[in-house]
């Protein structure tokens, strides 16, 4: 958070001192808890928010949210509410709940409580104003806290999903003993490139690979950033004792590499994947025997 403390400061209003107003309002909200919470739940259903959840689930979460809301108002601090917002988000995000729904229901709660405060008897207009002065900024802080907590959790989930997809979409294949093949397909962005490199290096160590064939047949072009990454991958692989053979280099990519200063004569490249595998096998000392020769020998 920012340099201000996580406290809900009541605005100074006319009439009763704000600390007292806050206590009064919390007492009112506690007293009418059941009725207000049920009214809120009804309004959630009427607004057609949170349709992914059943009425029973909504009622259960409504109770927790209500209680946490009152807690936050009373204690003046938002930490407990932040923690609750995160754990609530973890529960409901997999159900497909969206940001506008979460913000929507907290706003509804804010409105239900505000209306209840306005409609109850305060004795004087000034006292009502004092109570609202205490309530409004605090309630708004709470809405923001819950919304931000939800959004952060959502972003974290999306990032995790993207990582998982990236990892799945490019397997490192062990084809033979000590030989790894990394076929790259599709669009390469710096993030994916970095993940691939890490996966490959771990794979080299785990499989004790001595040769790696990186096949770029499925990649149309790459920017200089990603091209630099390819070079980095070749160099890092060598540090792990593995030689890299690059196959399927399109003329465009070859040009990009030259443009960033790569000496292509220093990089082992072969036209296609099959040729690359044969070259790799030669490196490893396998003799490549055409199948009809074998038949003839027996």
């Amino acid at each position: 958070m920012t340099t201000e403390t996580n406290k809900l400061q009541p605005r100074k209003g006319s009439g009763a001192p704000s600390g007292e107003s806050l206590r009064e309002l919390v007492a009112h909200l506690r007293q009418n808890r059941t009725q207000l919470r049920d009214e809120w739940a009804k309004r959630i259903t009427a607004s057609k928010l949170m349709t992914e959840m059943t009425a029973a689930e909504i009622a259960a979460e409504a109770t927790s949210v209500y209680d946490n809301y009152i807690e936050a108002l009373e204690s003046g601090t938002l930490e407990a509410l932040e923690a609750y917002a995160r754990s609530l988000s973890e529960r409901i995000i997999p159900r497909g709940v969206e940001t506008h729904e979460v913000v929507g229901i907290v706003l509804l709660l804010r409105d239900v409580l505000a209306r209840s405060l306005i409609n109850s008897d305060h004795g004087s207009f000034d006292r009502l104003n004092a109570i609202l002065d205490a309530y409004e900024p605090a309630a708004n802080r709470i809405v923001i806290t819950v919304a931000v907590g939800f959004v952060q959790e959502r972003e974290r989930t999306i990032r995790e999903q993207q990582d998982a997809i990236r990892e799945l979409s490019t397997p490192v294949l062990q084809v033979r003993d000590r030989l790894l093949i990394l076929p790259i397909i599709g669009v390469m962005d710096p993030q994916r490139a970095r993940q691939l490199t890490e996966q490959l290096l771990r794979g080299i160590r785990a499989n004790r690979a001595k040769v790696v064939v990186i096949d770029l047949t499925g990649v149309a072009a790459m920017d200089s950033n990603v091209a630099n990454h390819l070079v980095l991958t070749v160099e890092a692989s060598r540090l792990l004792g593995a030689k890299v053979i690059v196959t399927g280099l399109s003329p465009e990519i070859a040009q990009t590499l030259v443009n960033i200063g790569v000496d292509l004569t220093k990089m082992t490249t072969v036209g296609d994947l099959q040729g690359g595998i044969e070259e790799a096998e030669r490196e490893l000392g396998y003799k490549v025997v055409p199948s009809d020769d074998v038949v003839a020998a027996t």
Binding site: T197, E198, L201, I204, R205, T233, L239, L240
Partner: peptide, 13 residues
């Protein structure tokens, strides 16, 4: 021998 993957990555960077 034994350069760890993270170290190799860092060195290359």
């Amino acid at each position: 021998v034994g350069i760890q993957p993270e170290i190799a990555f860092t060195m290359a960077r």
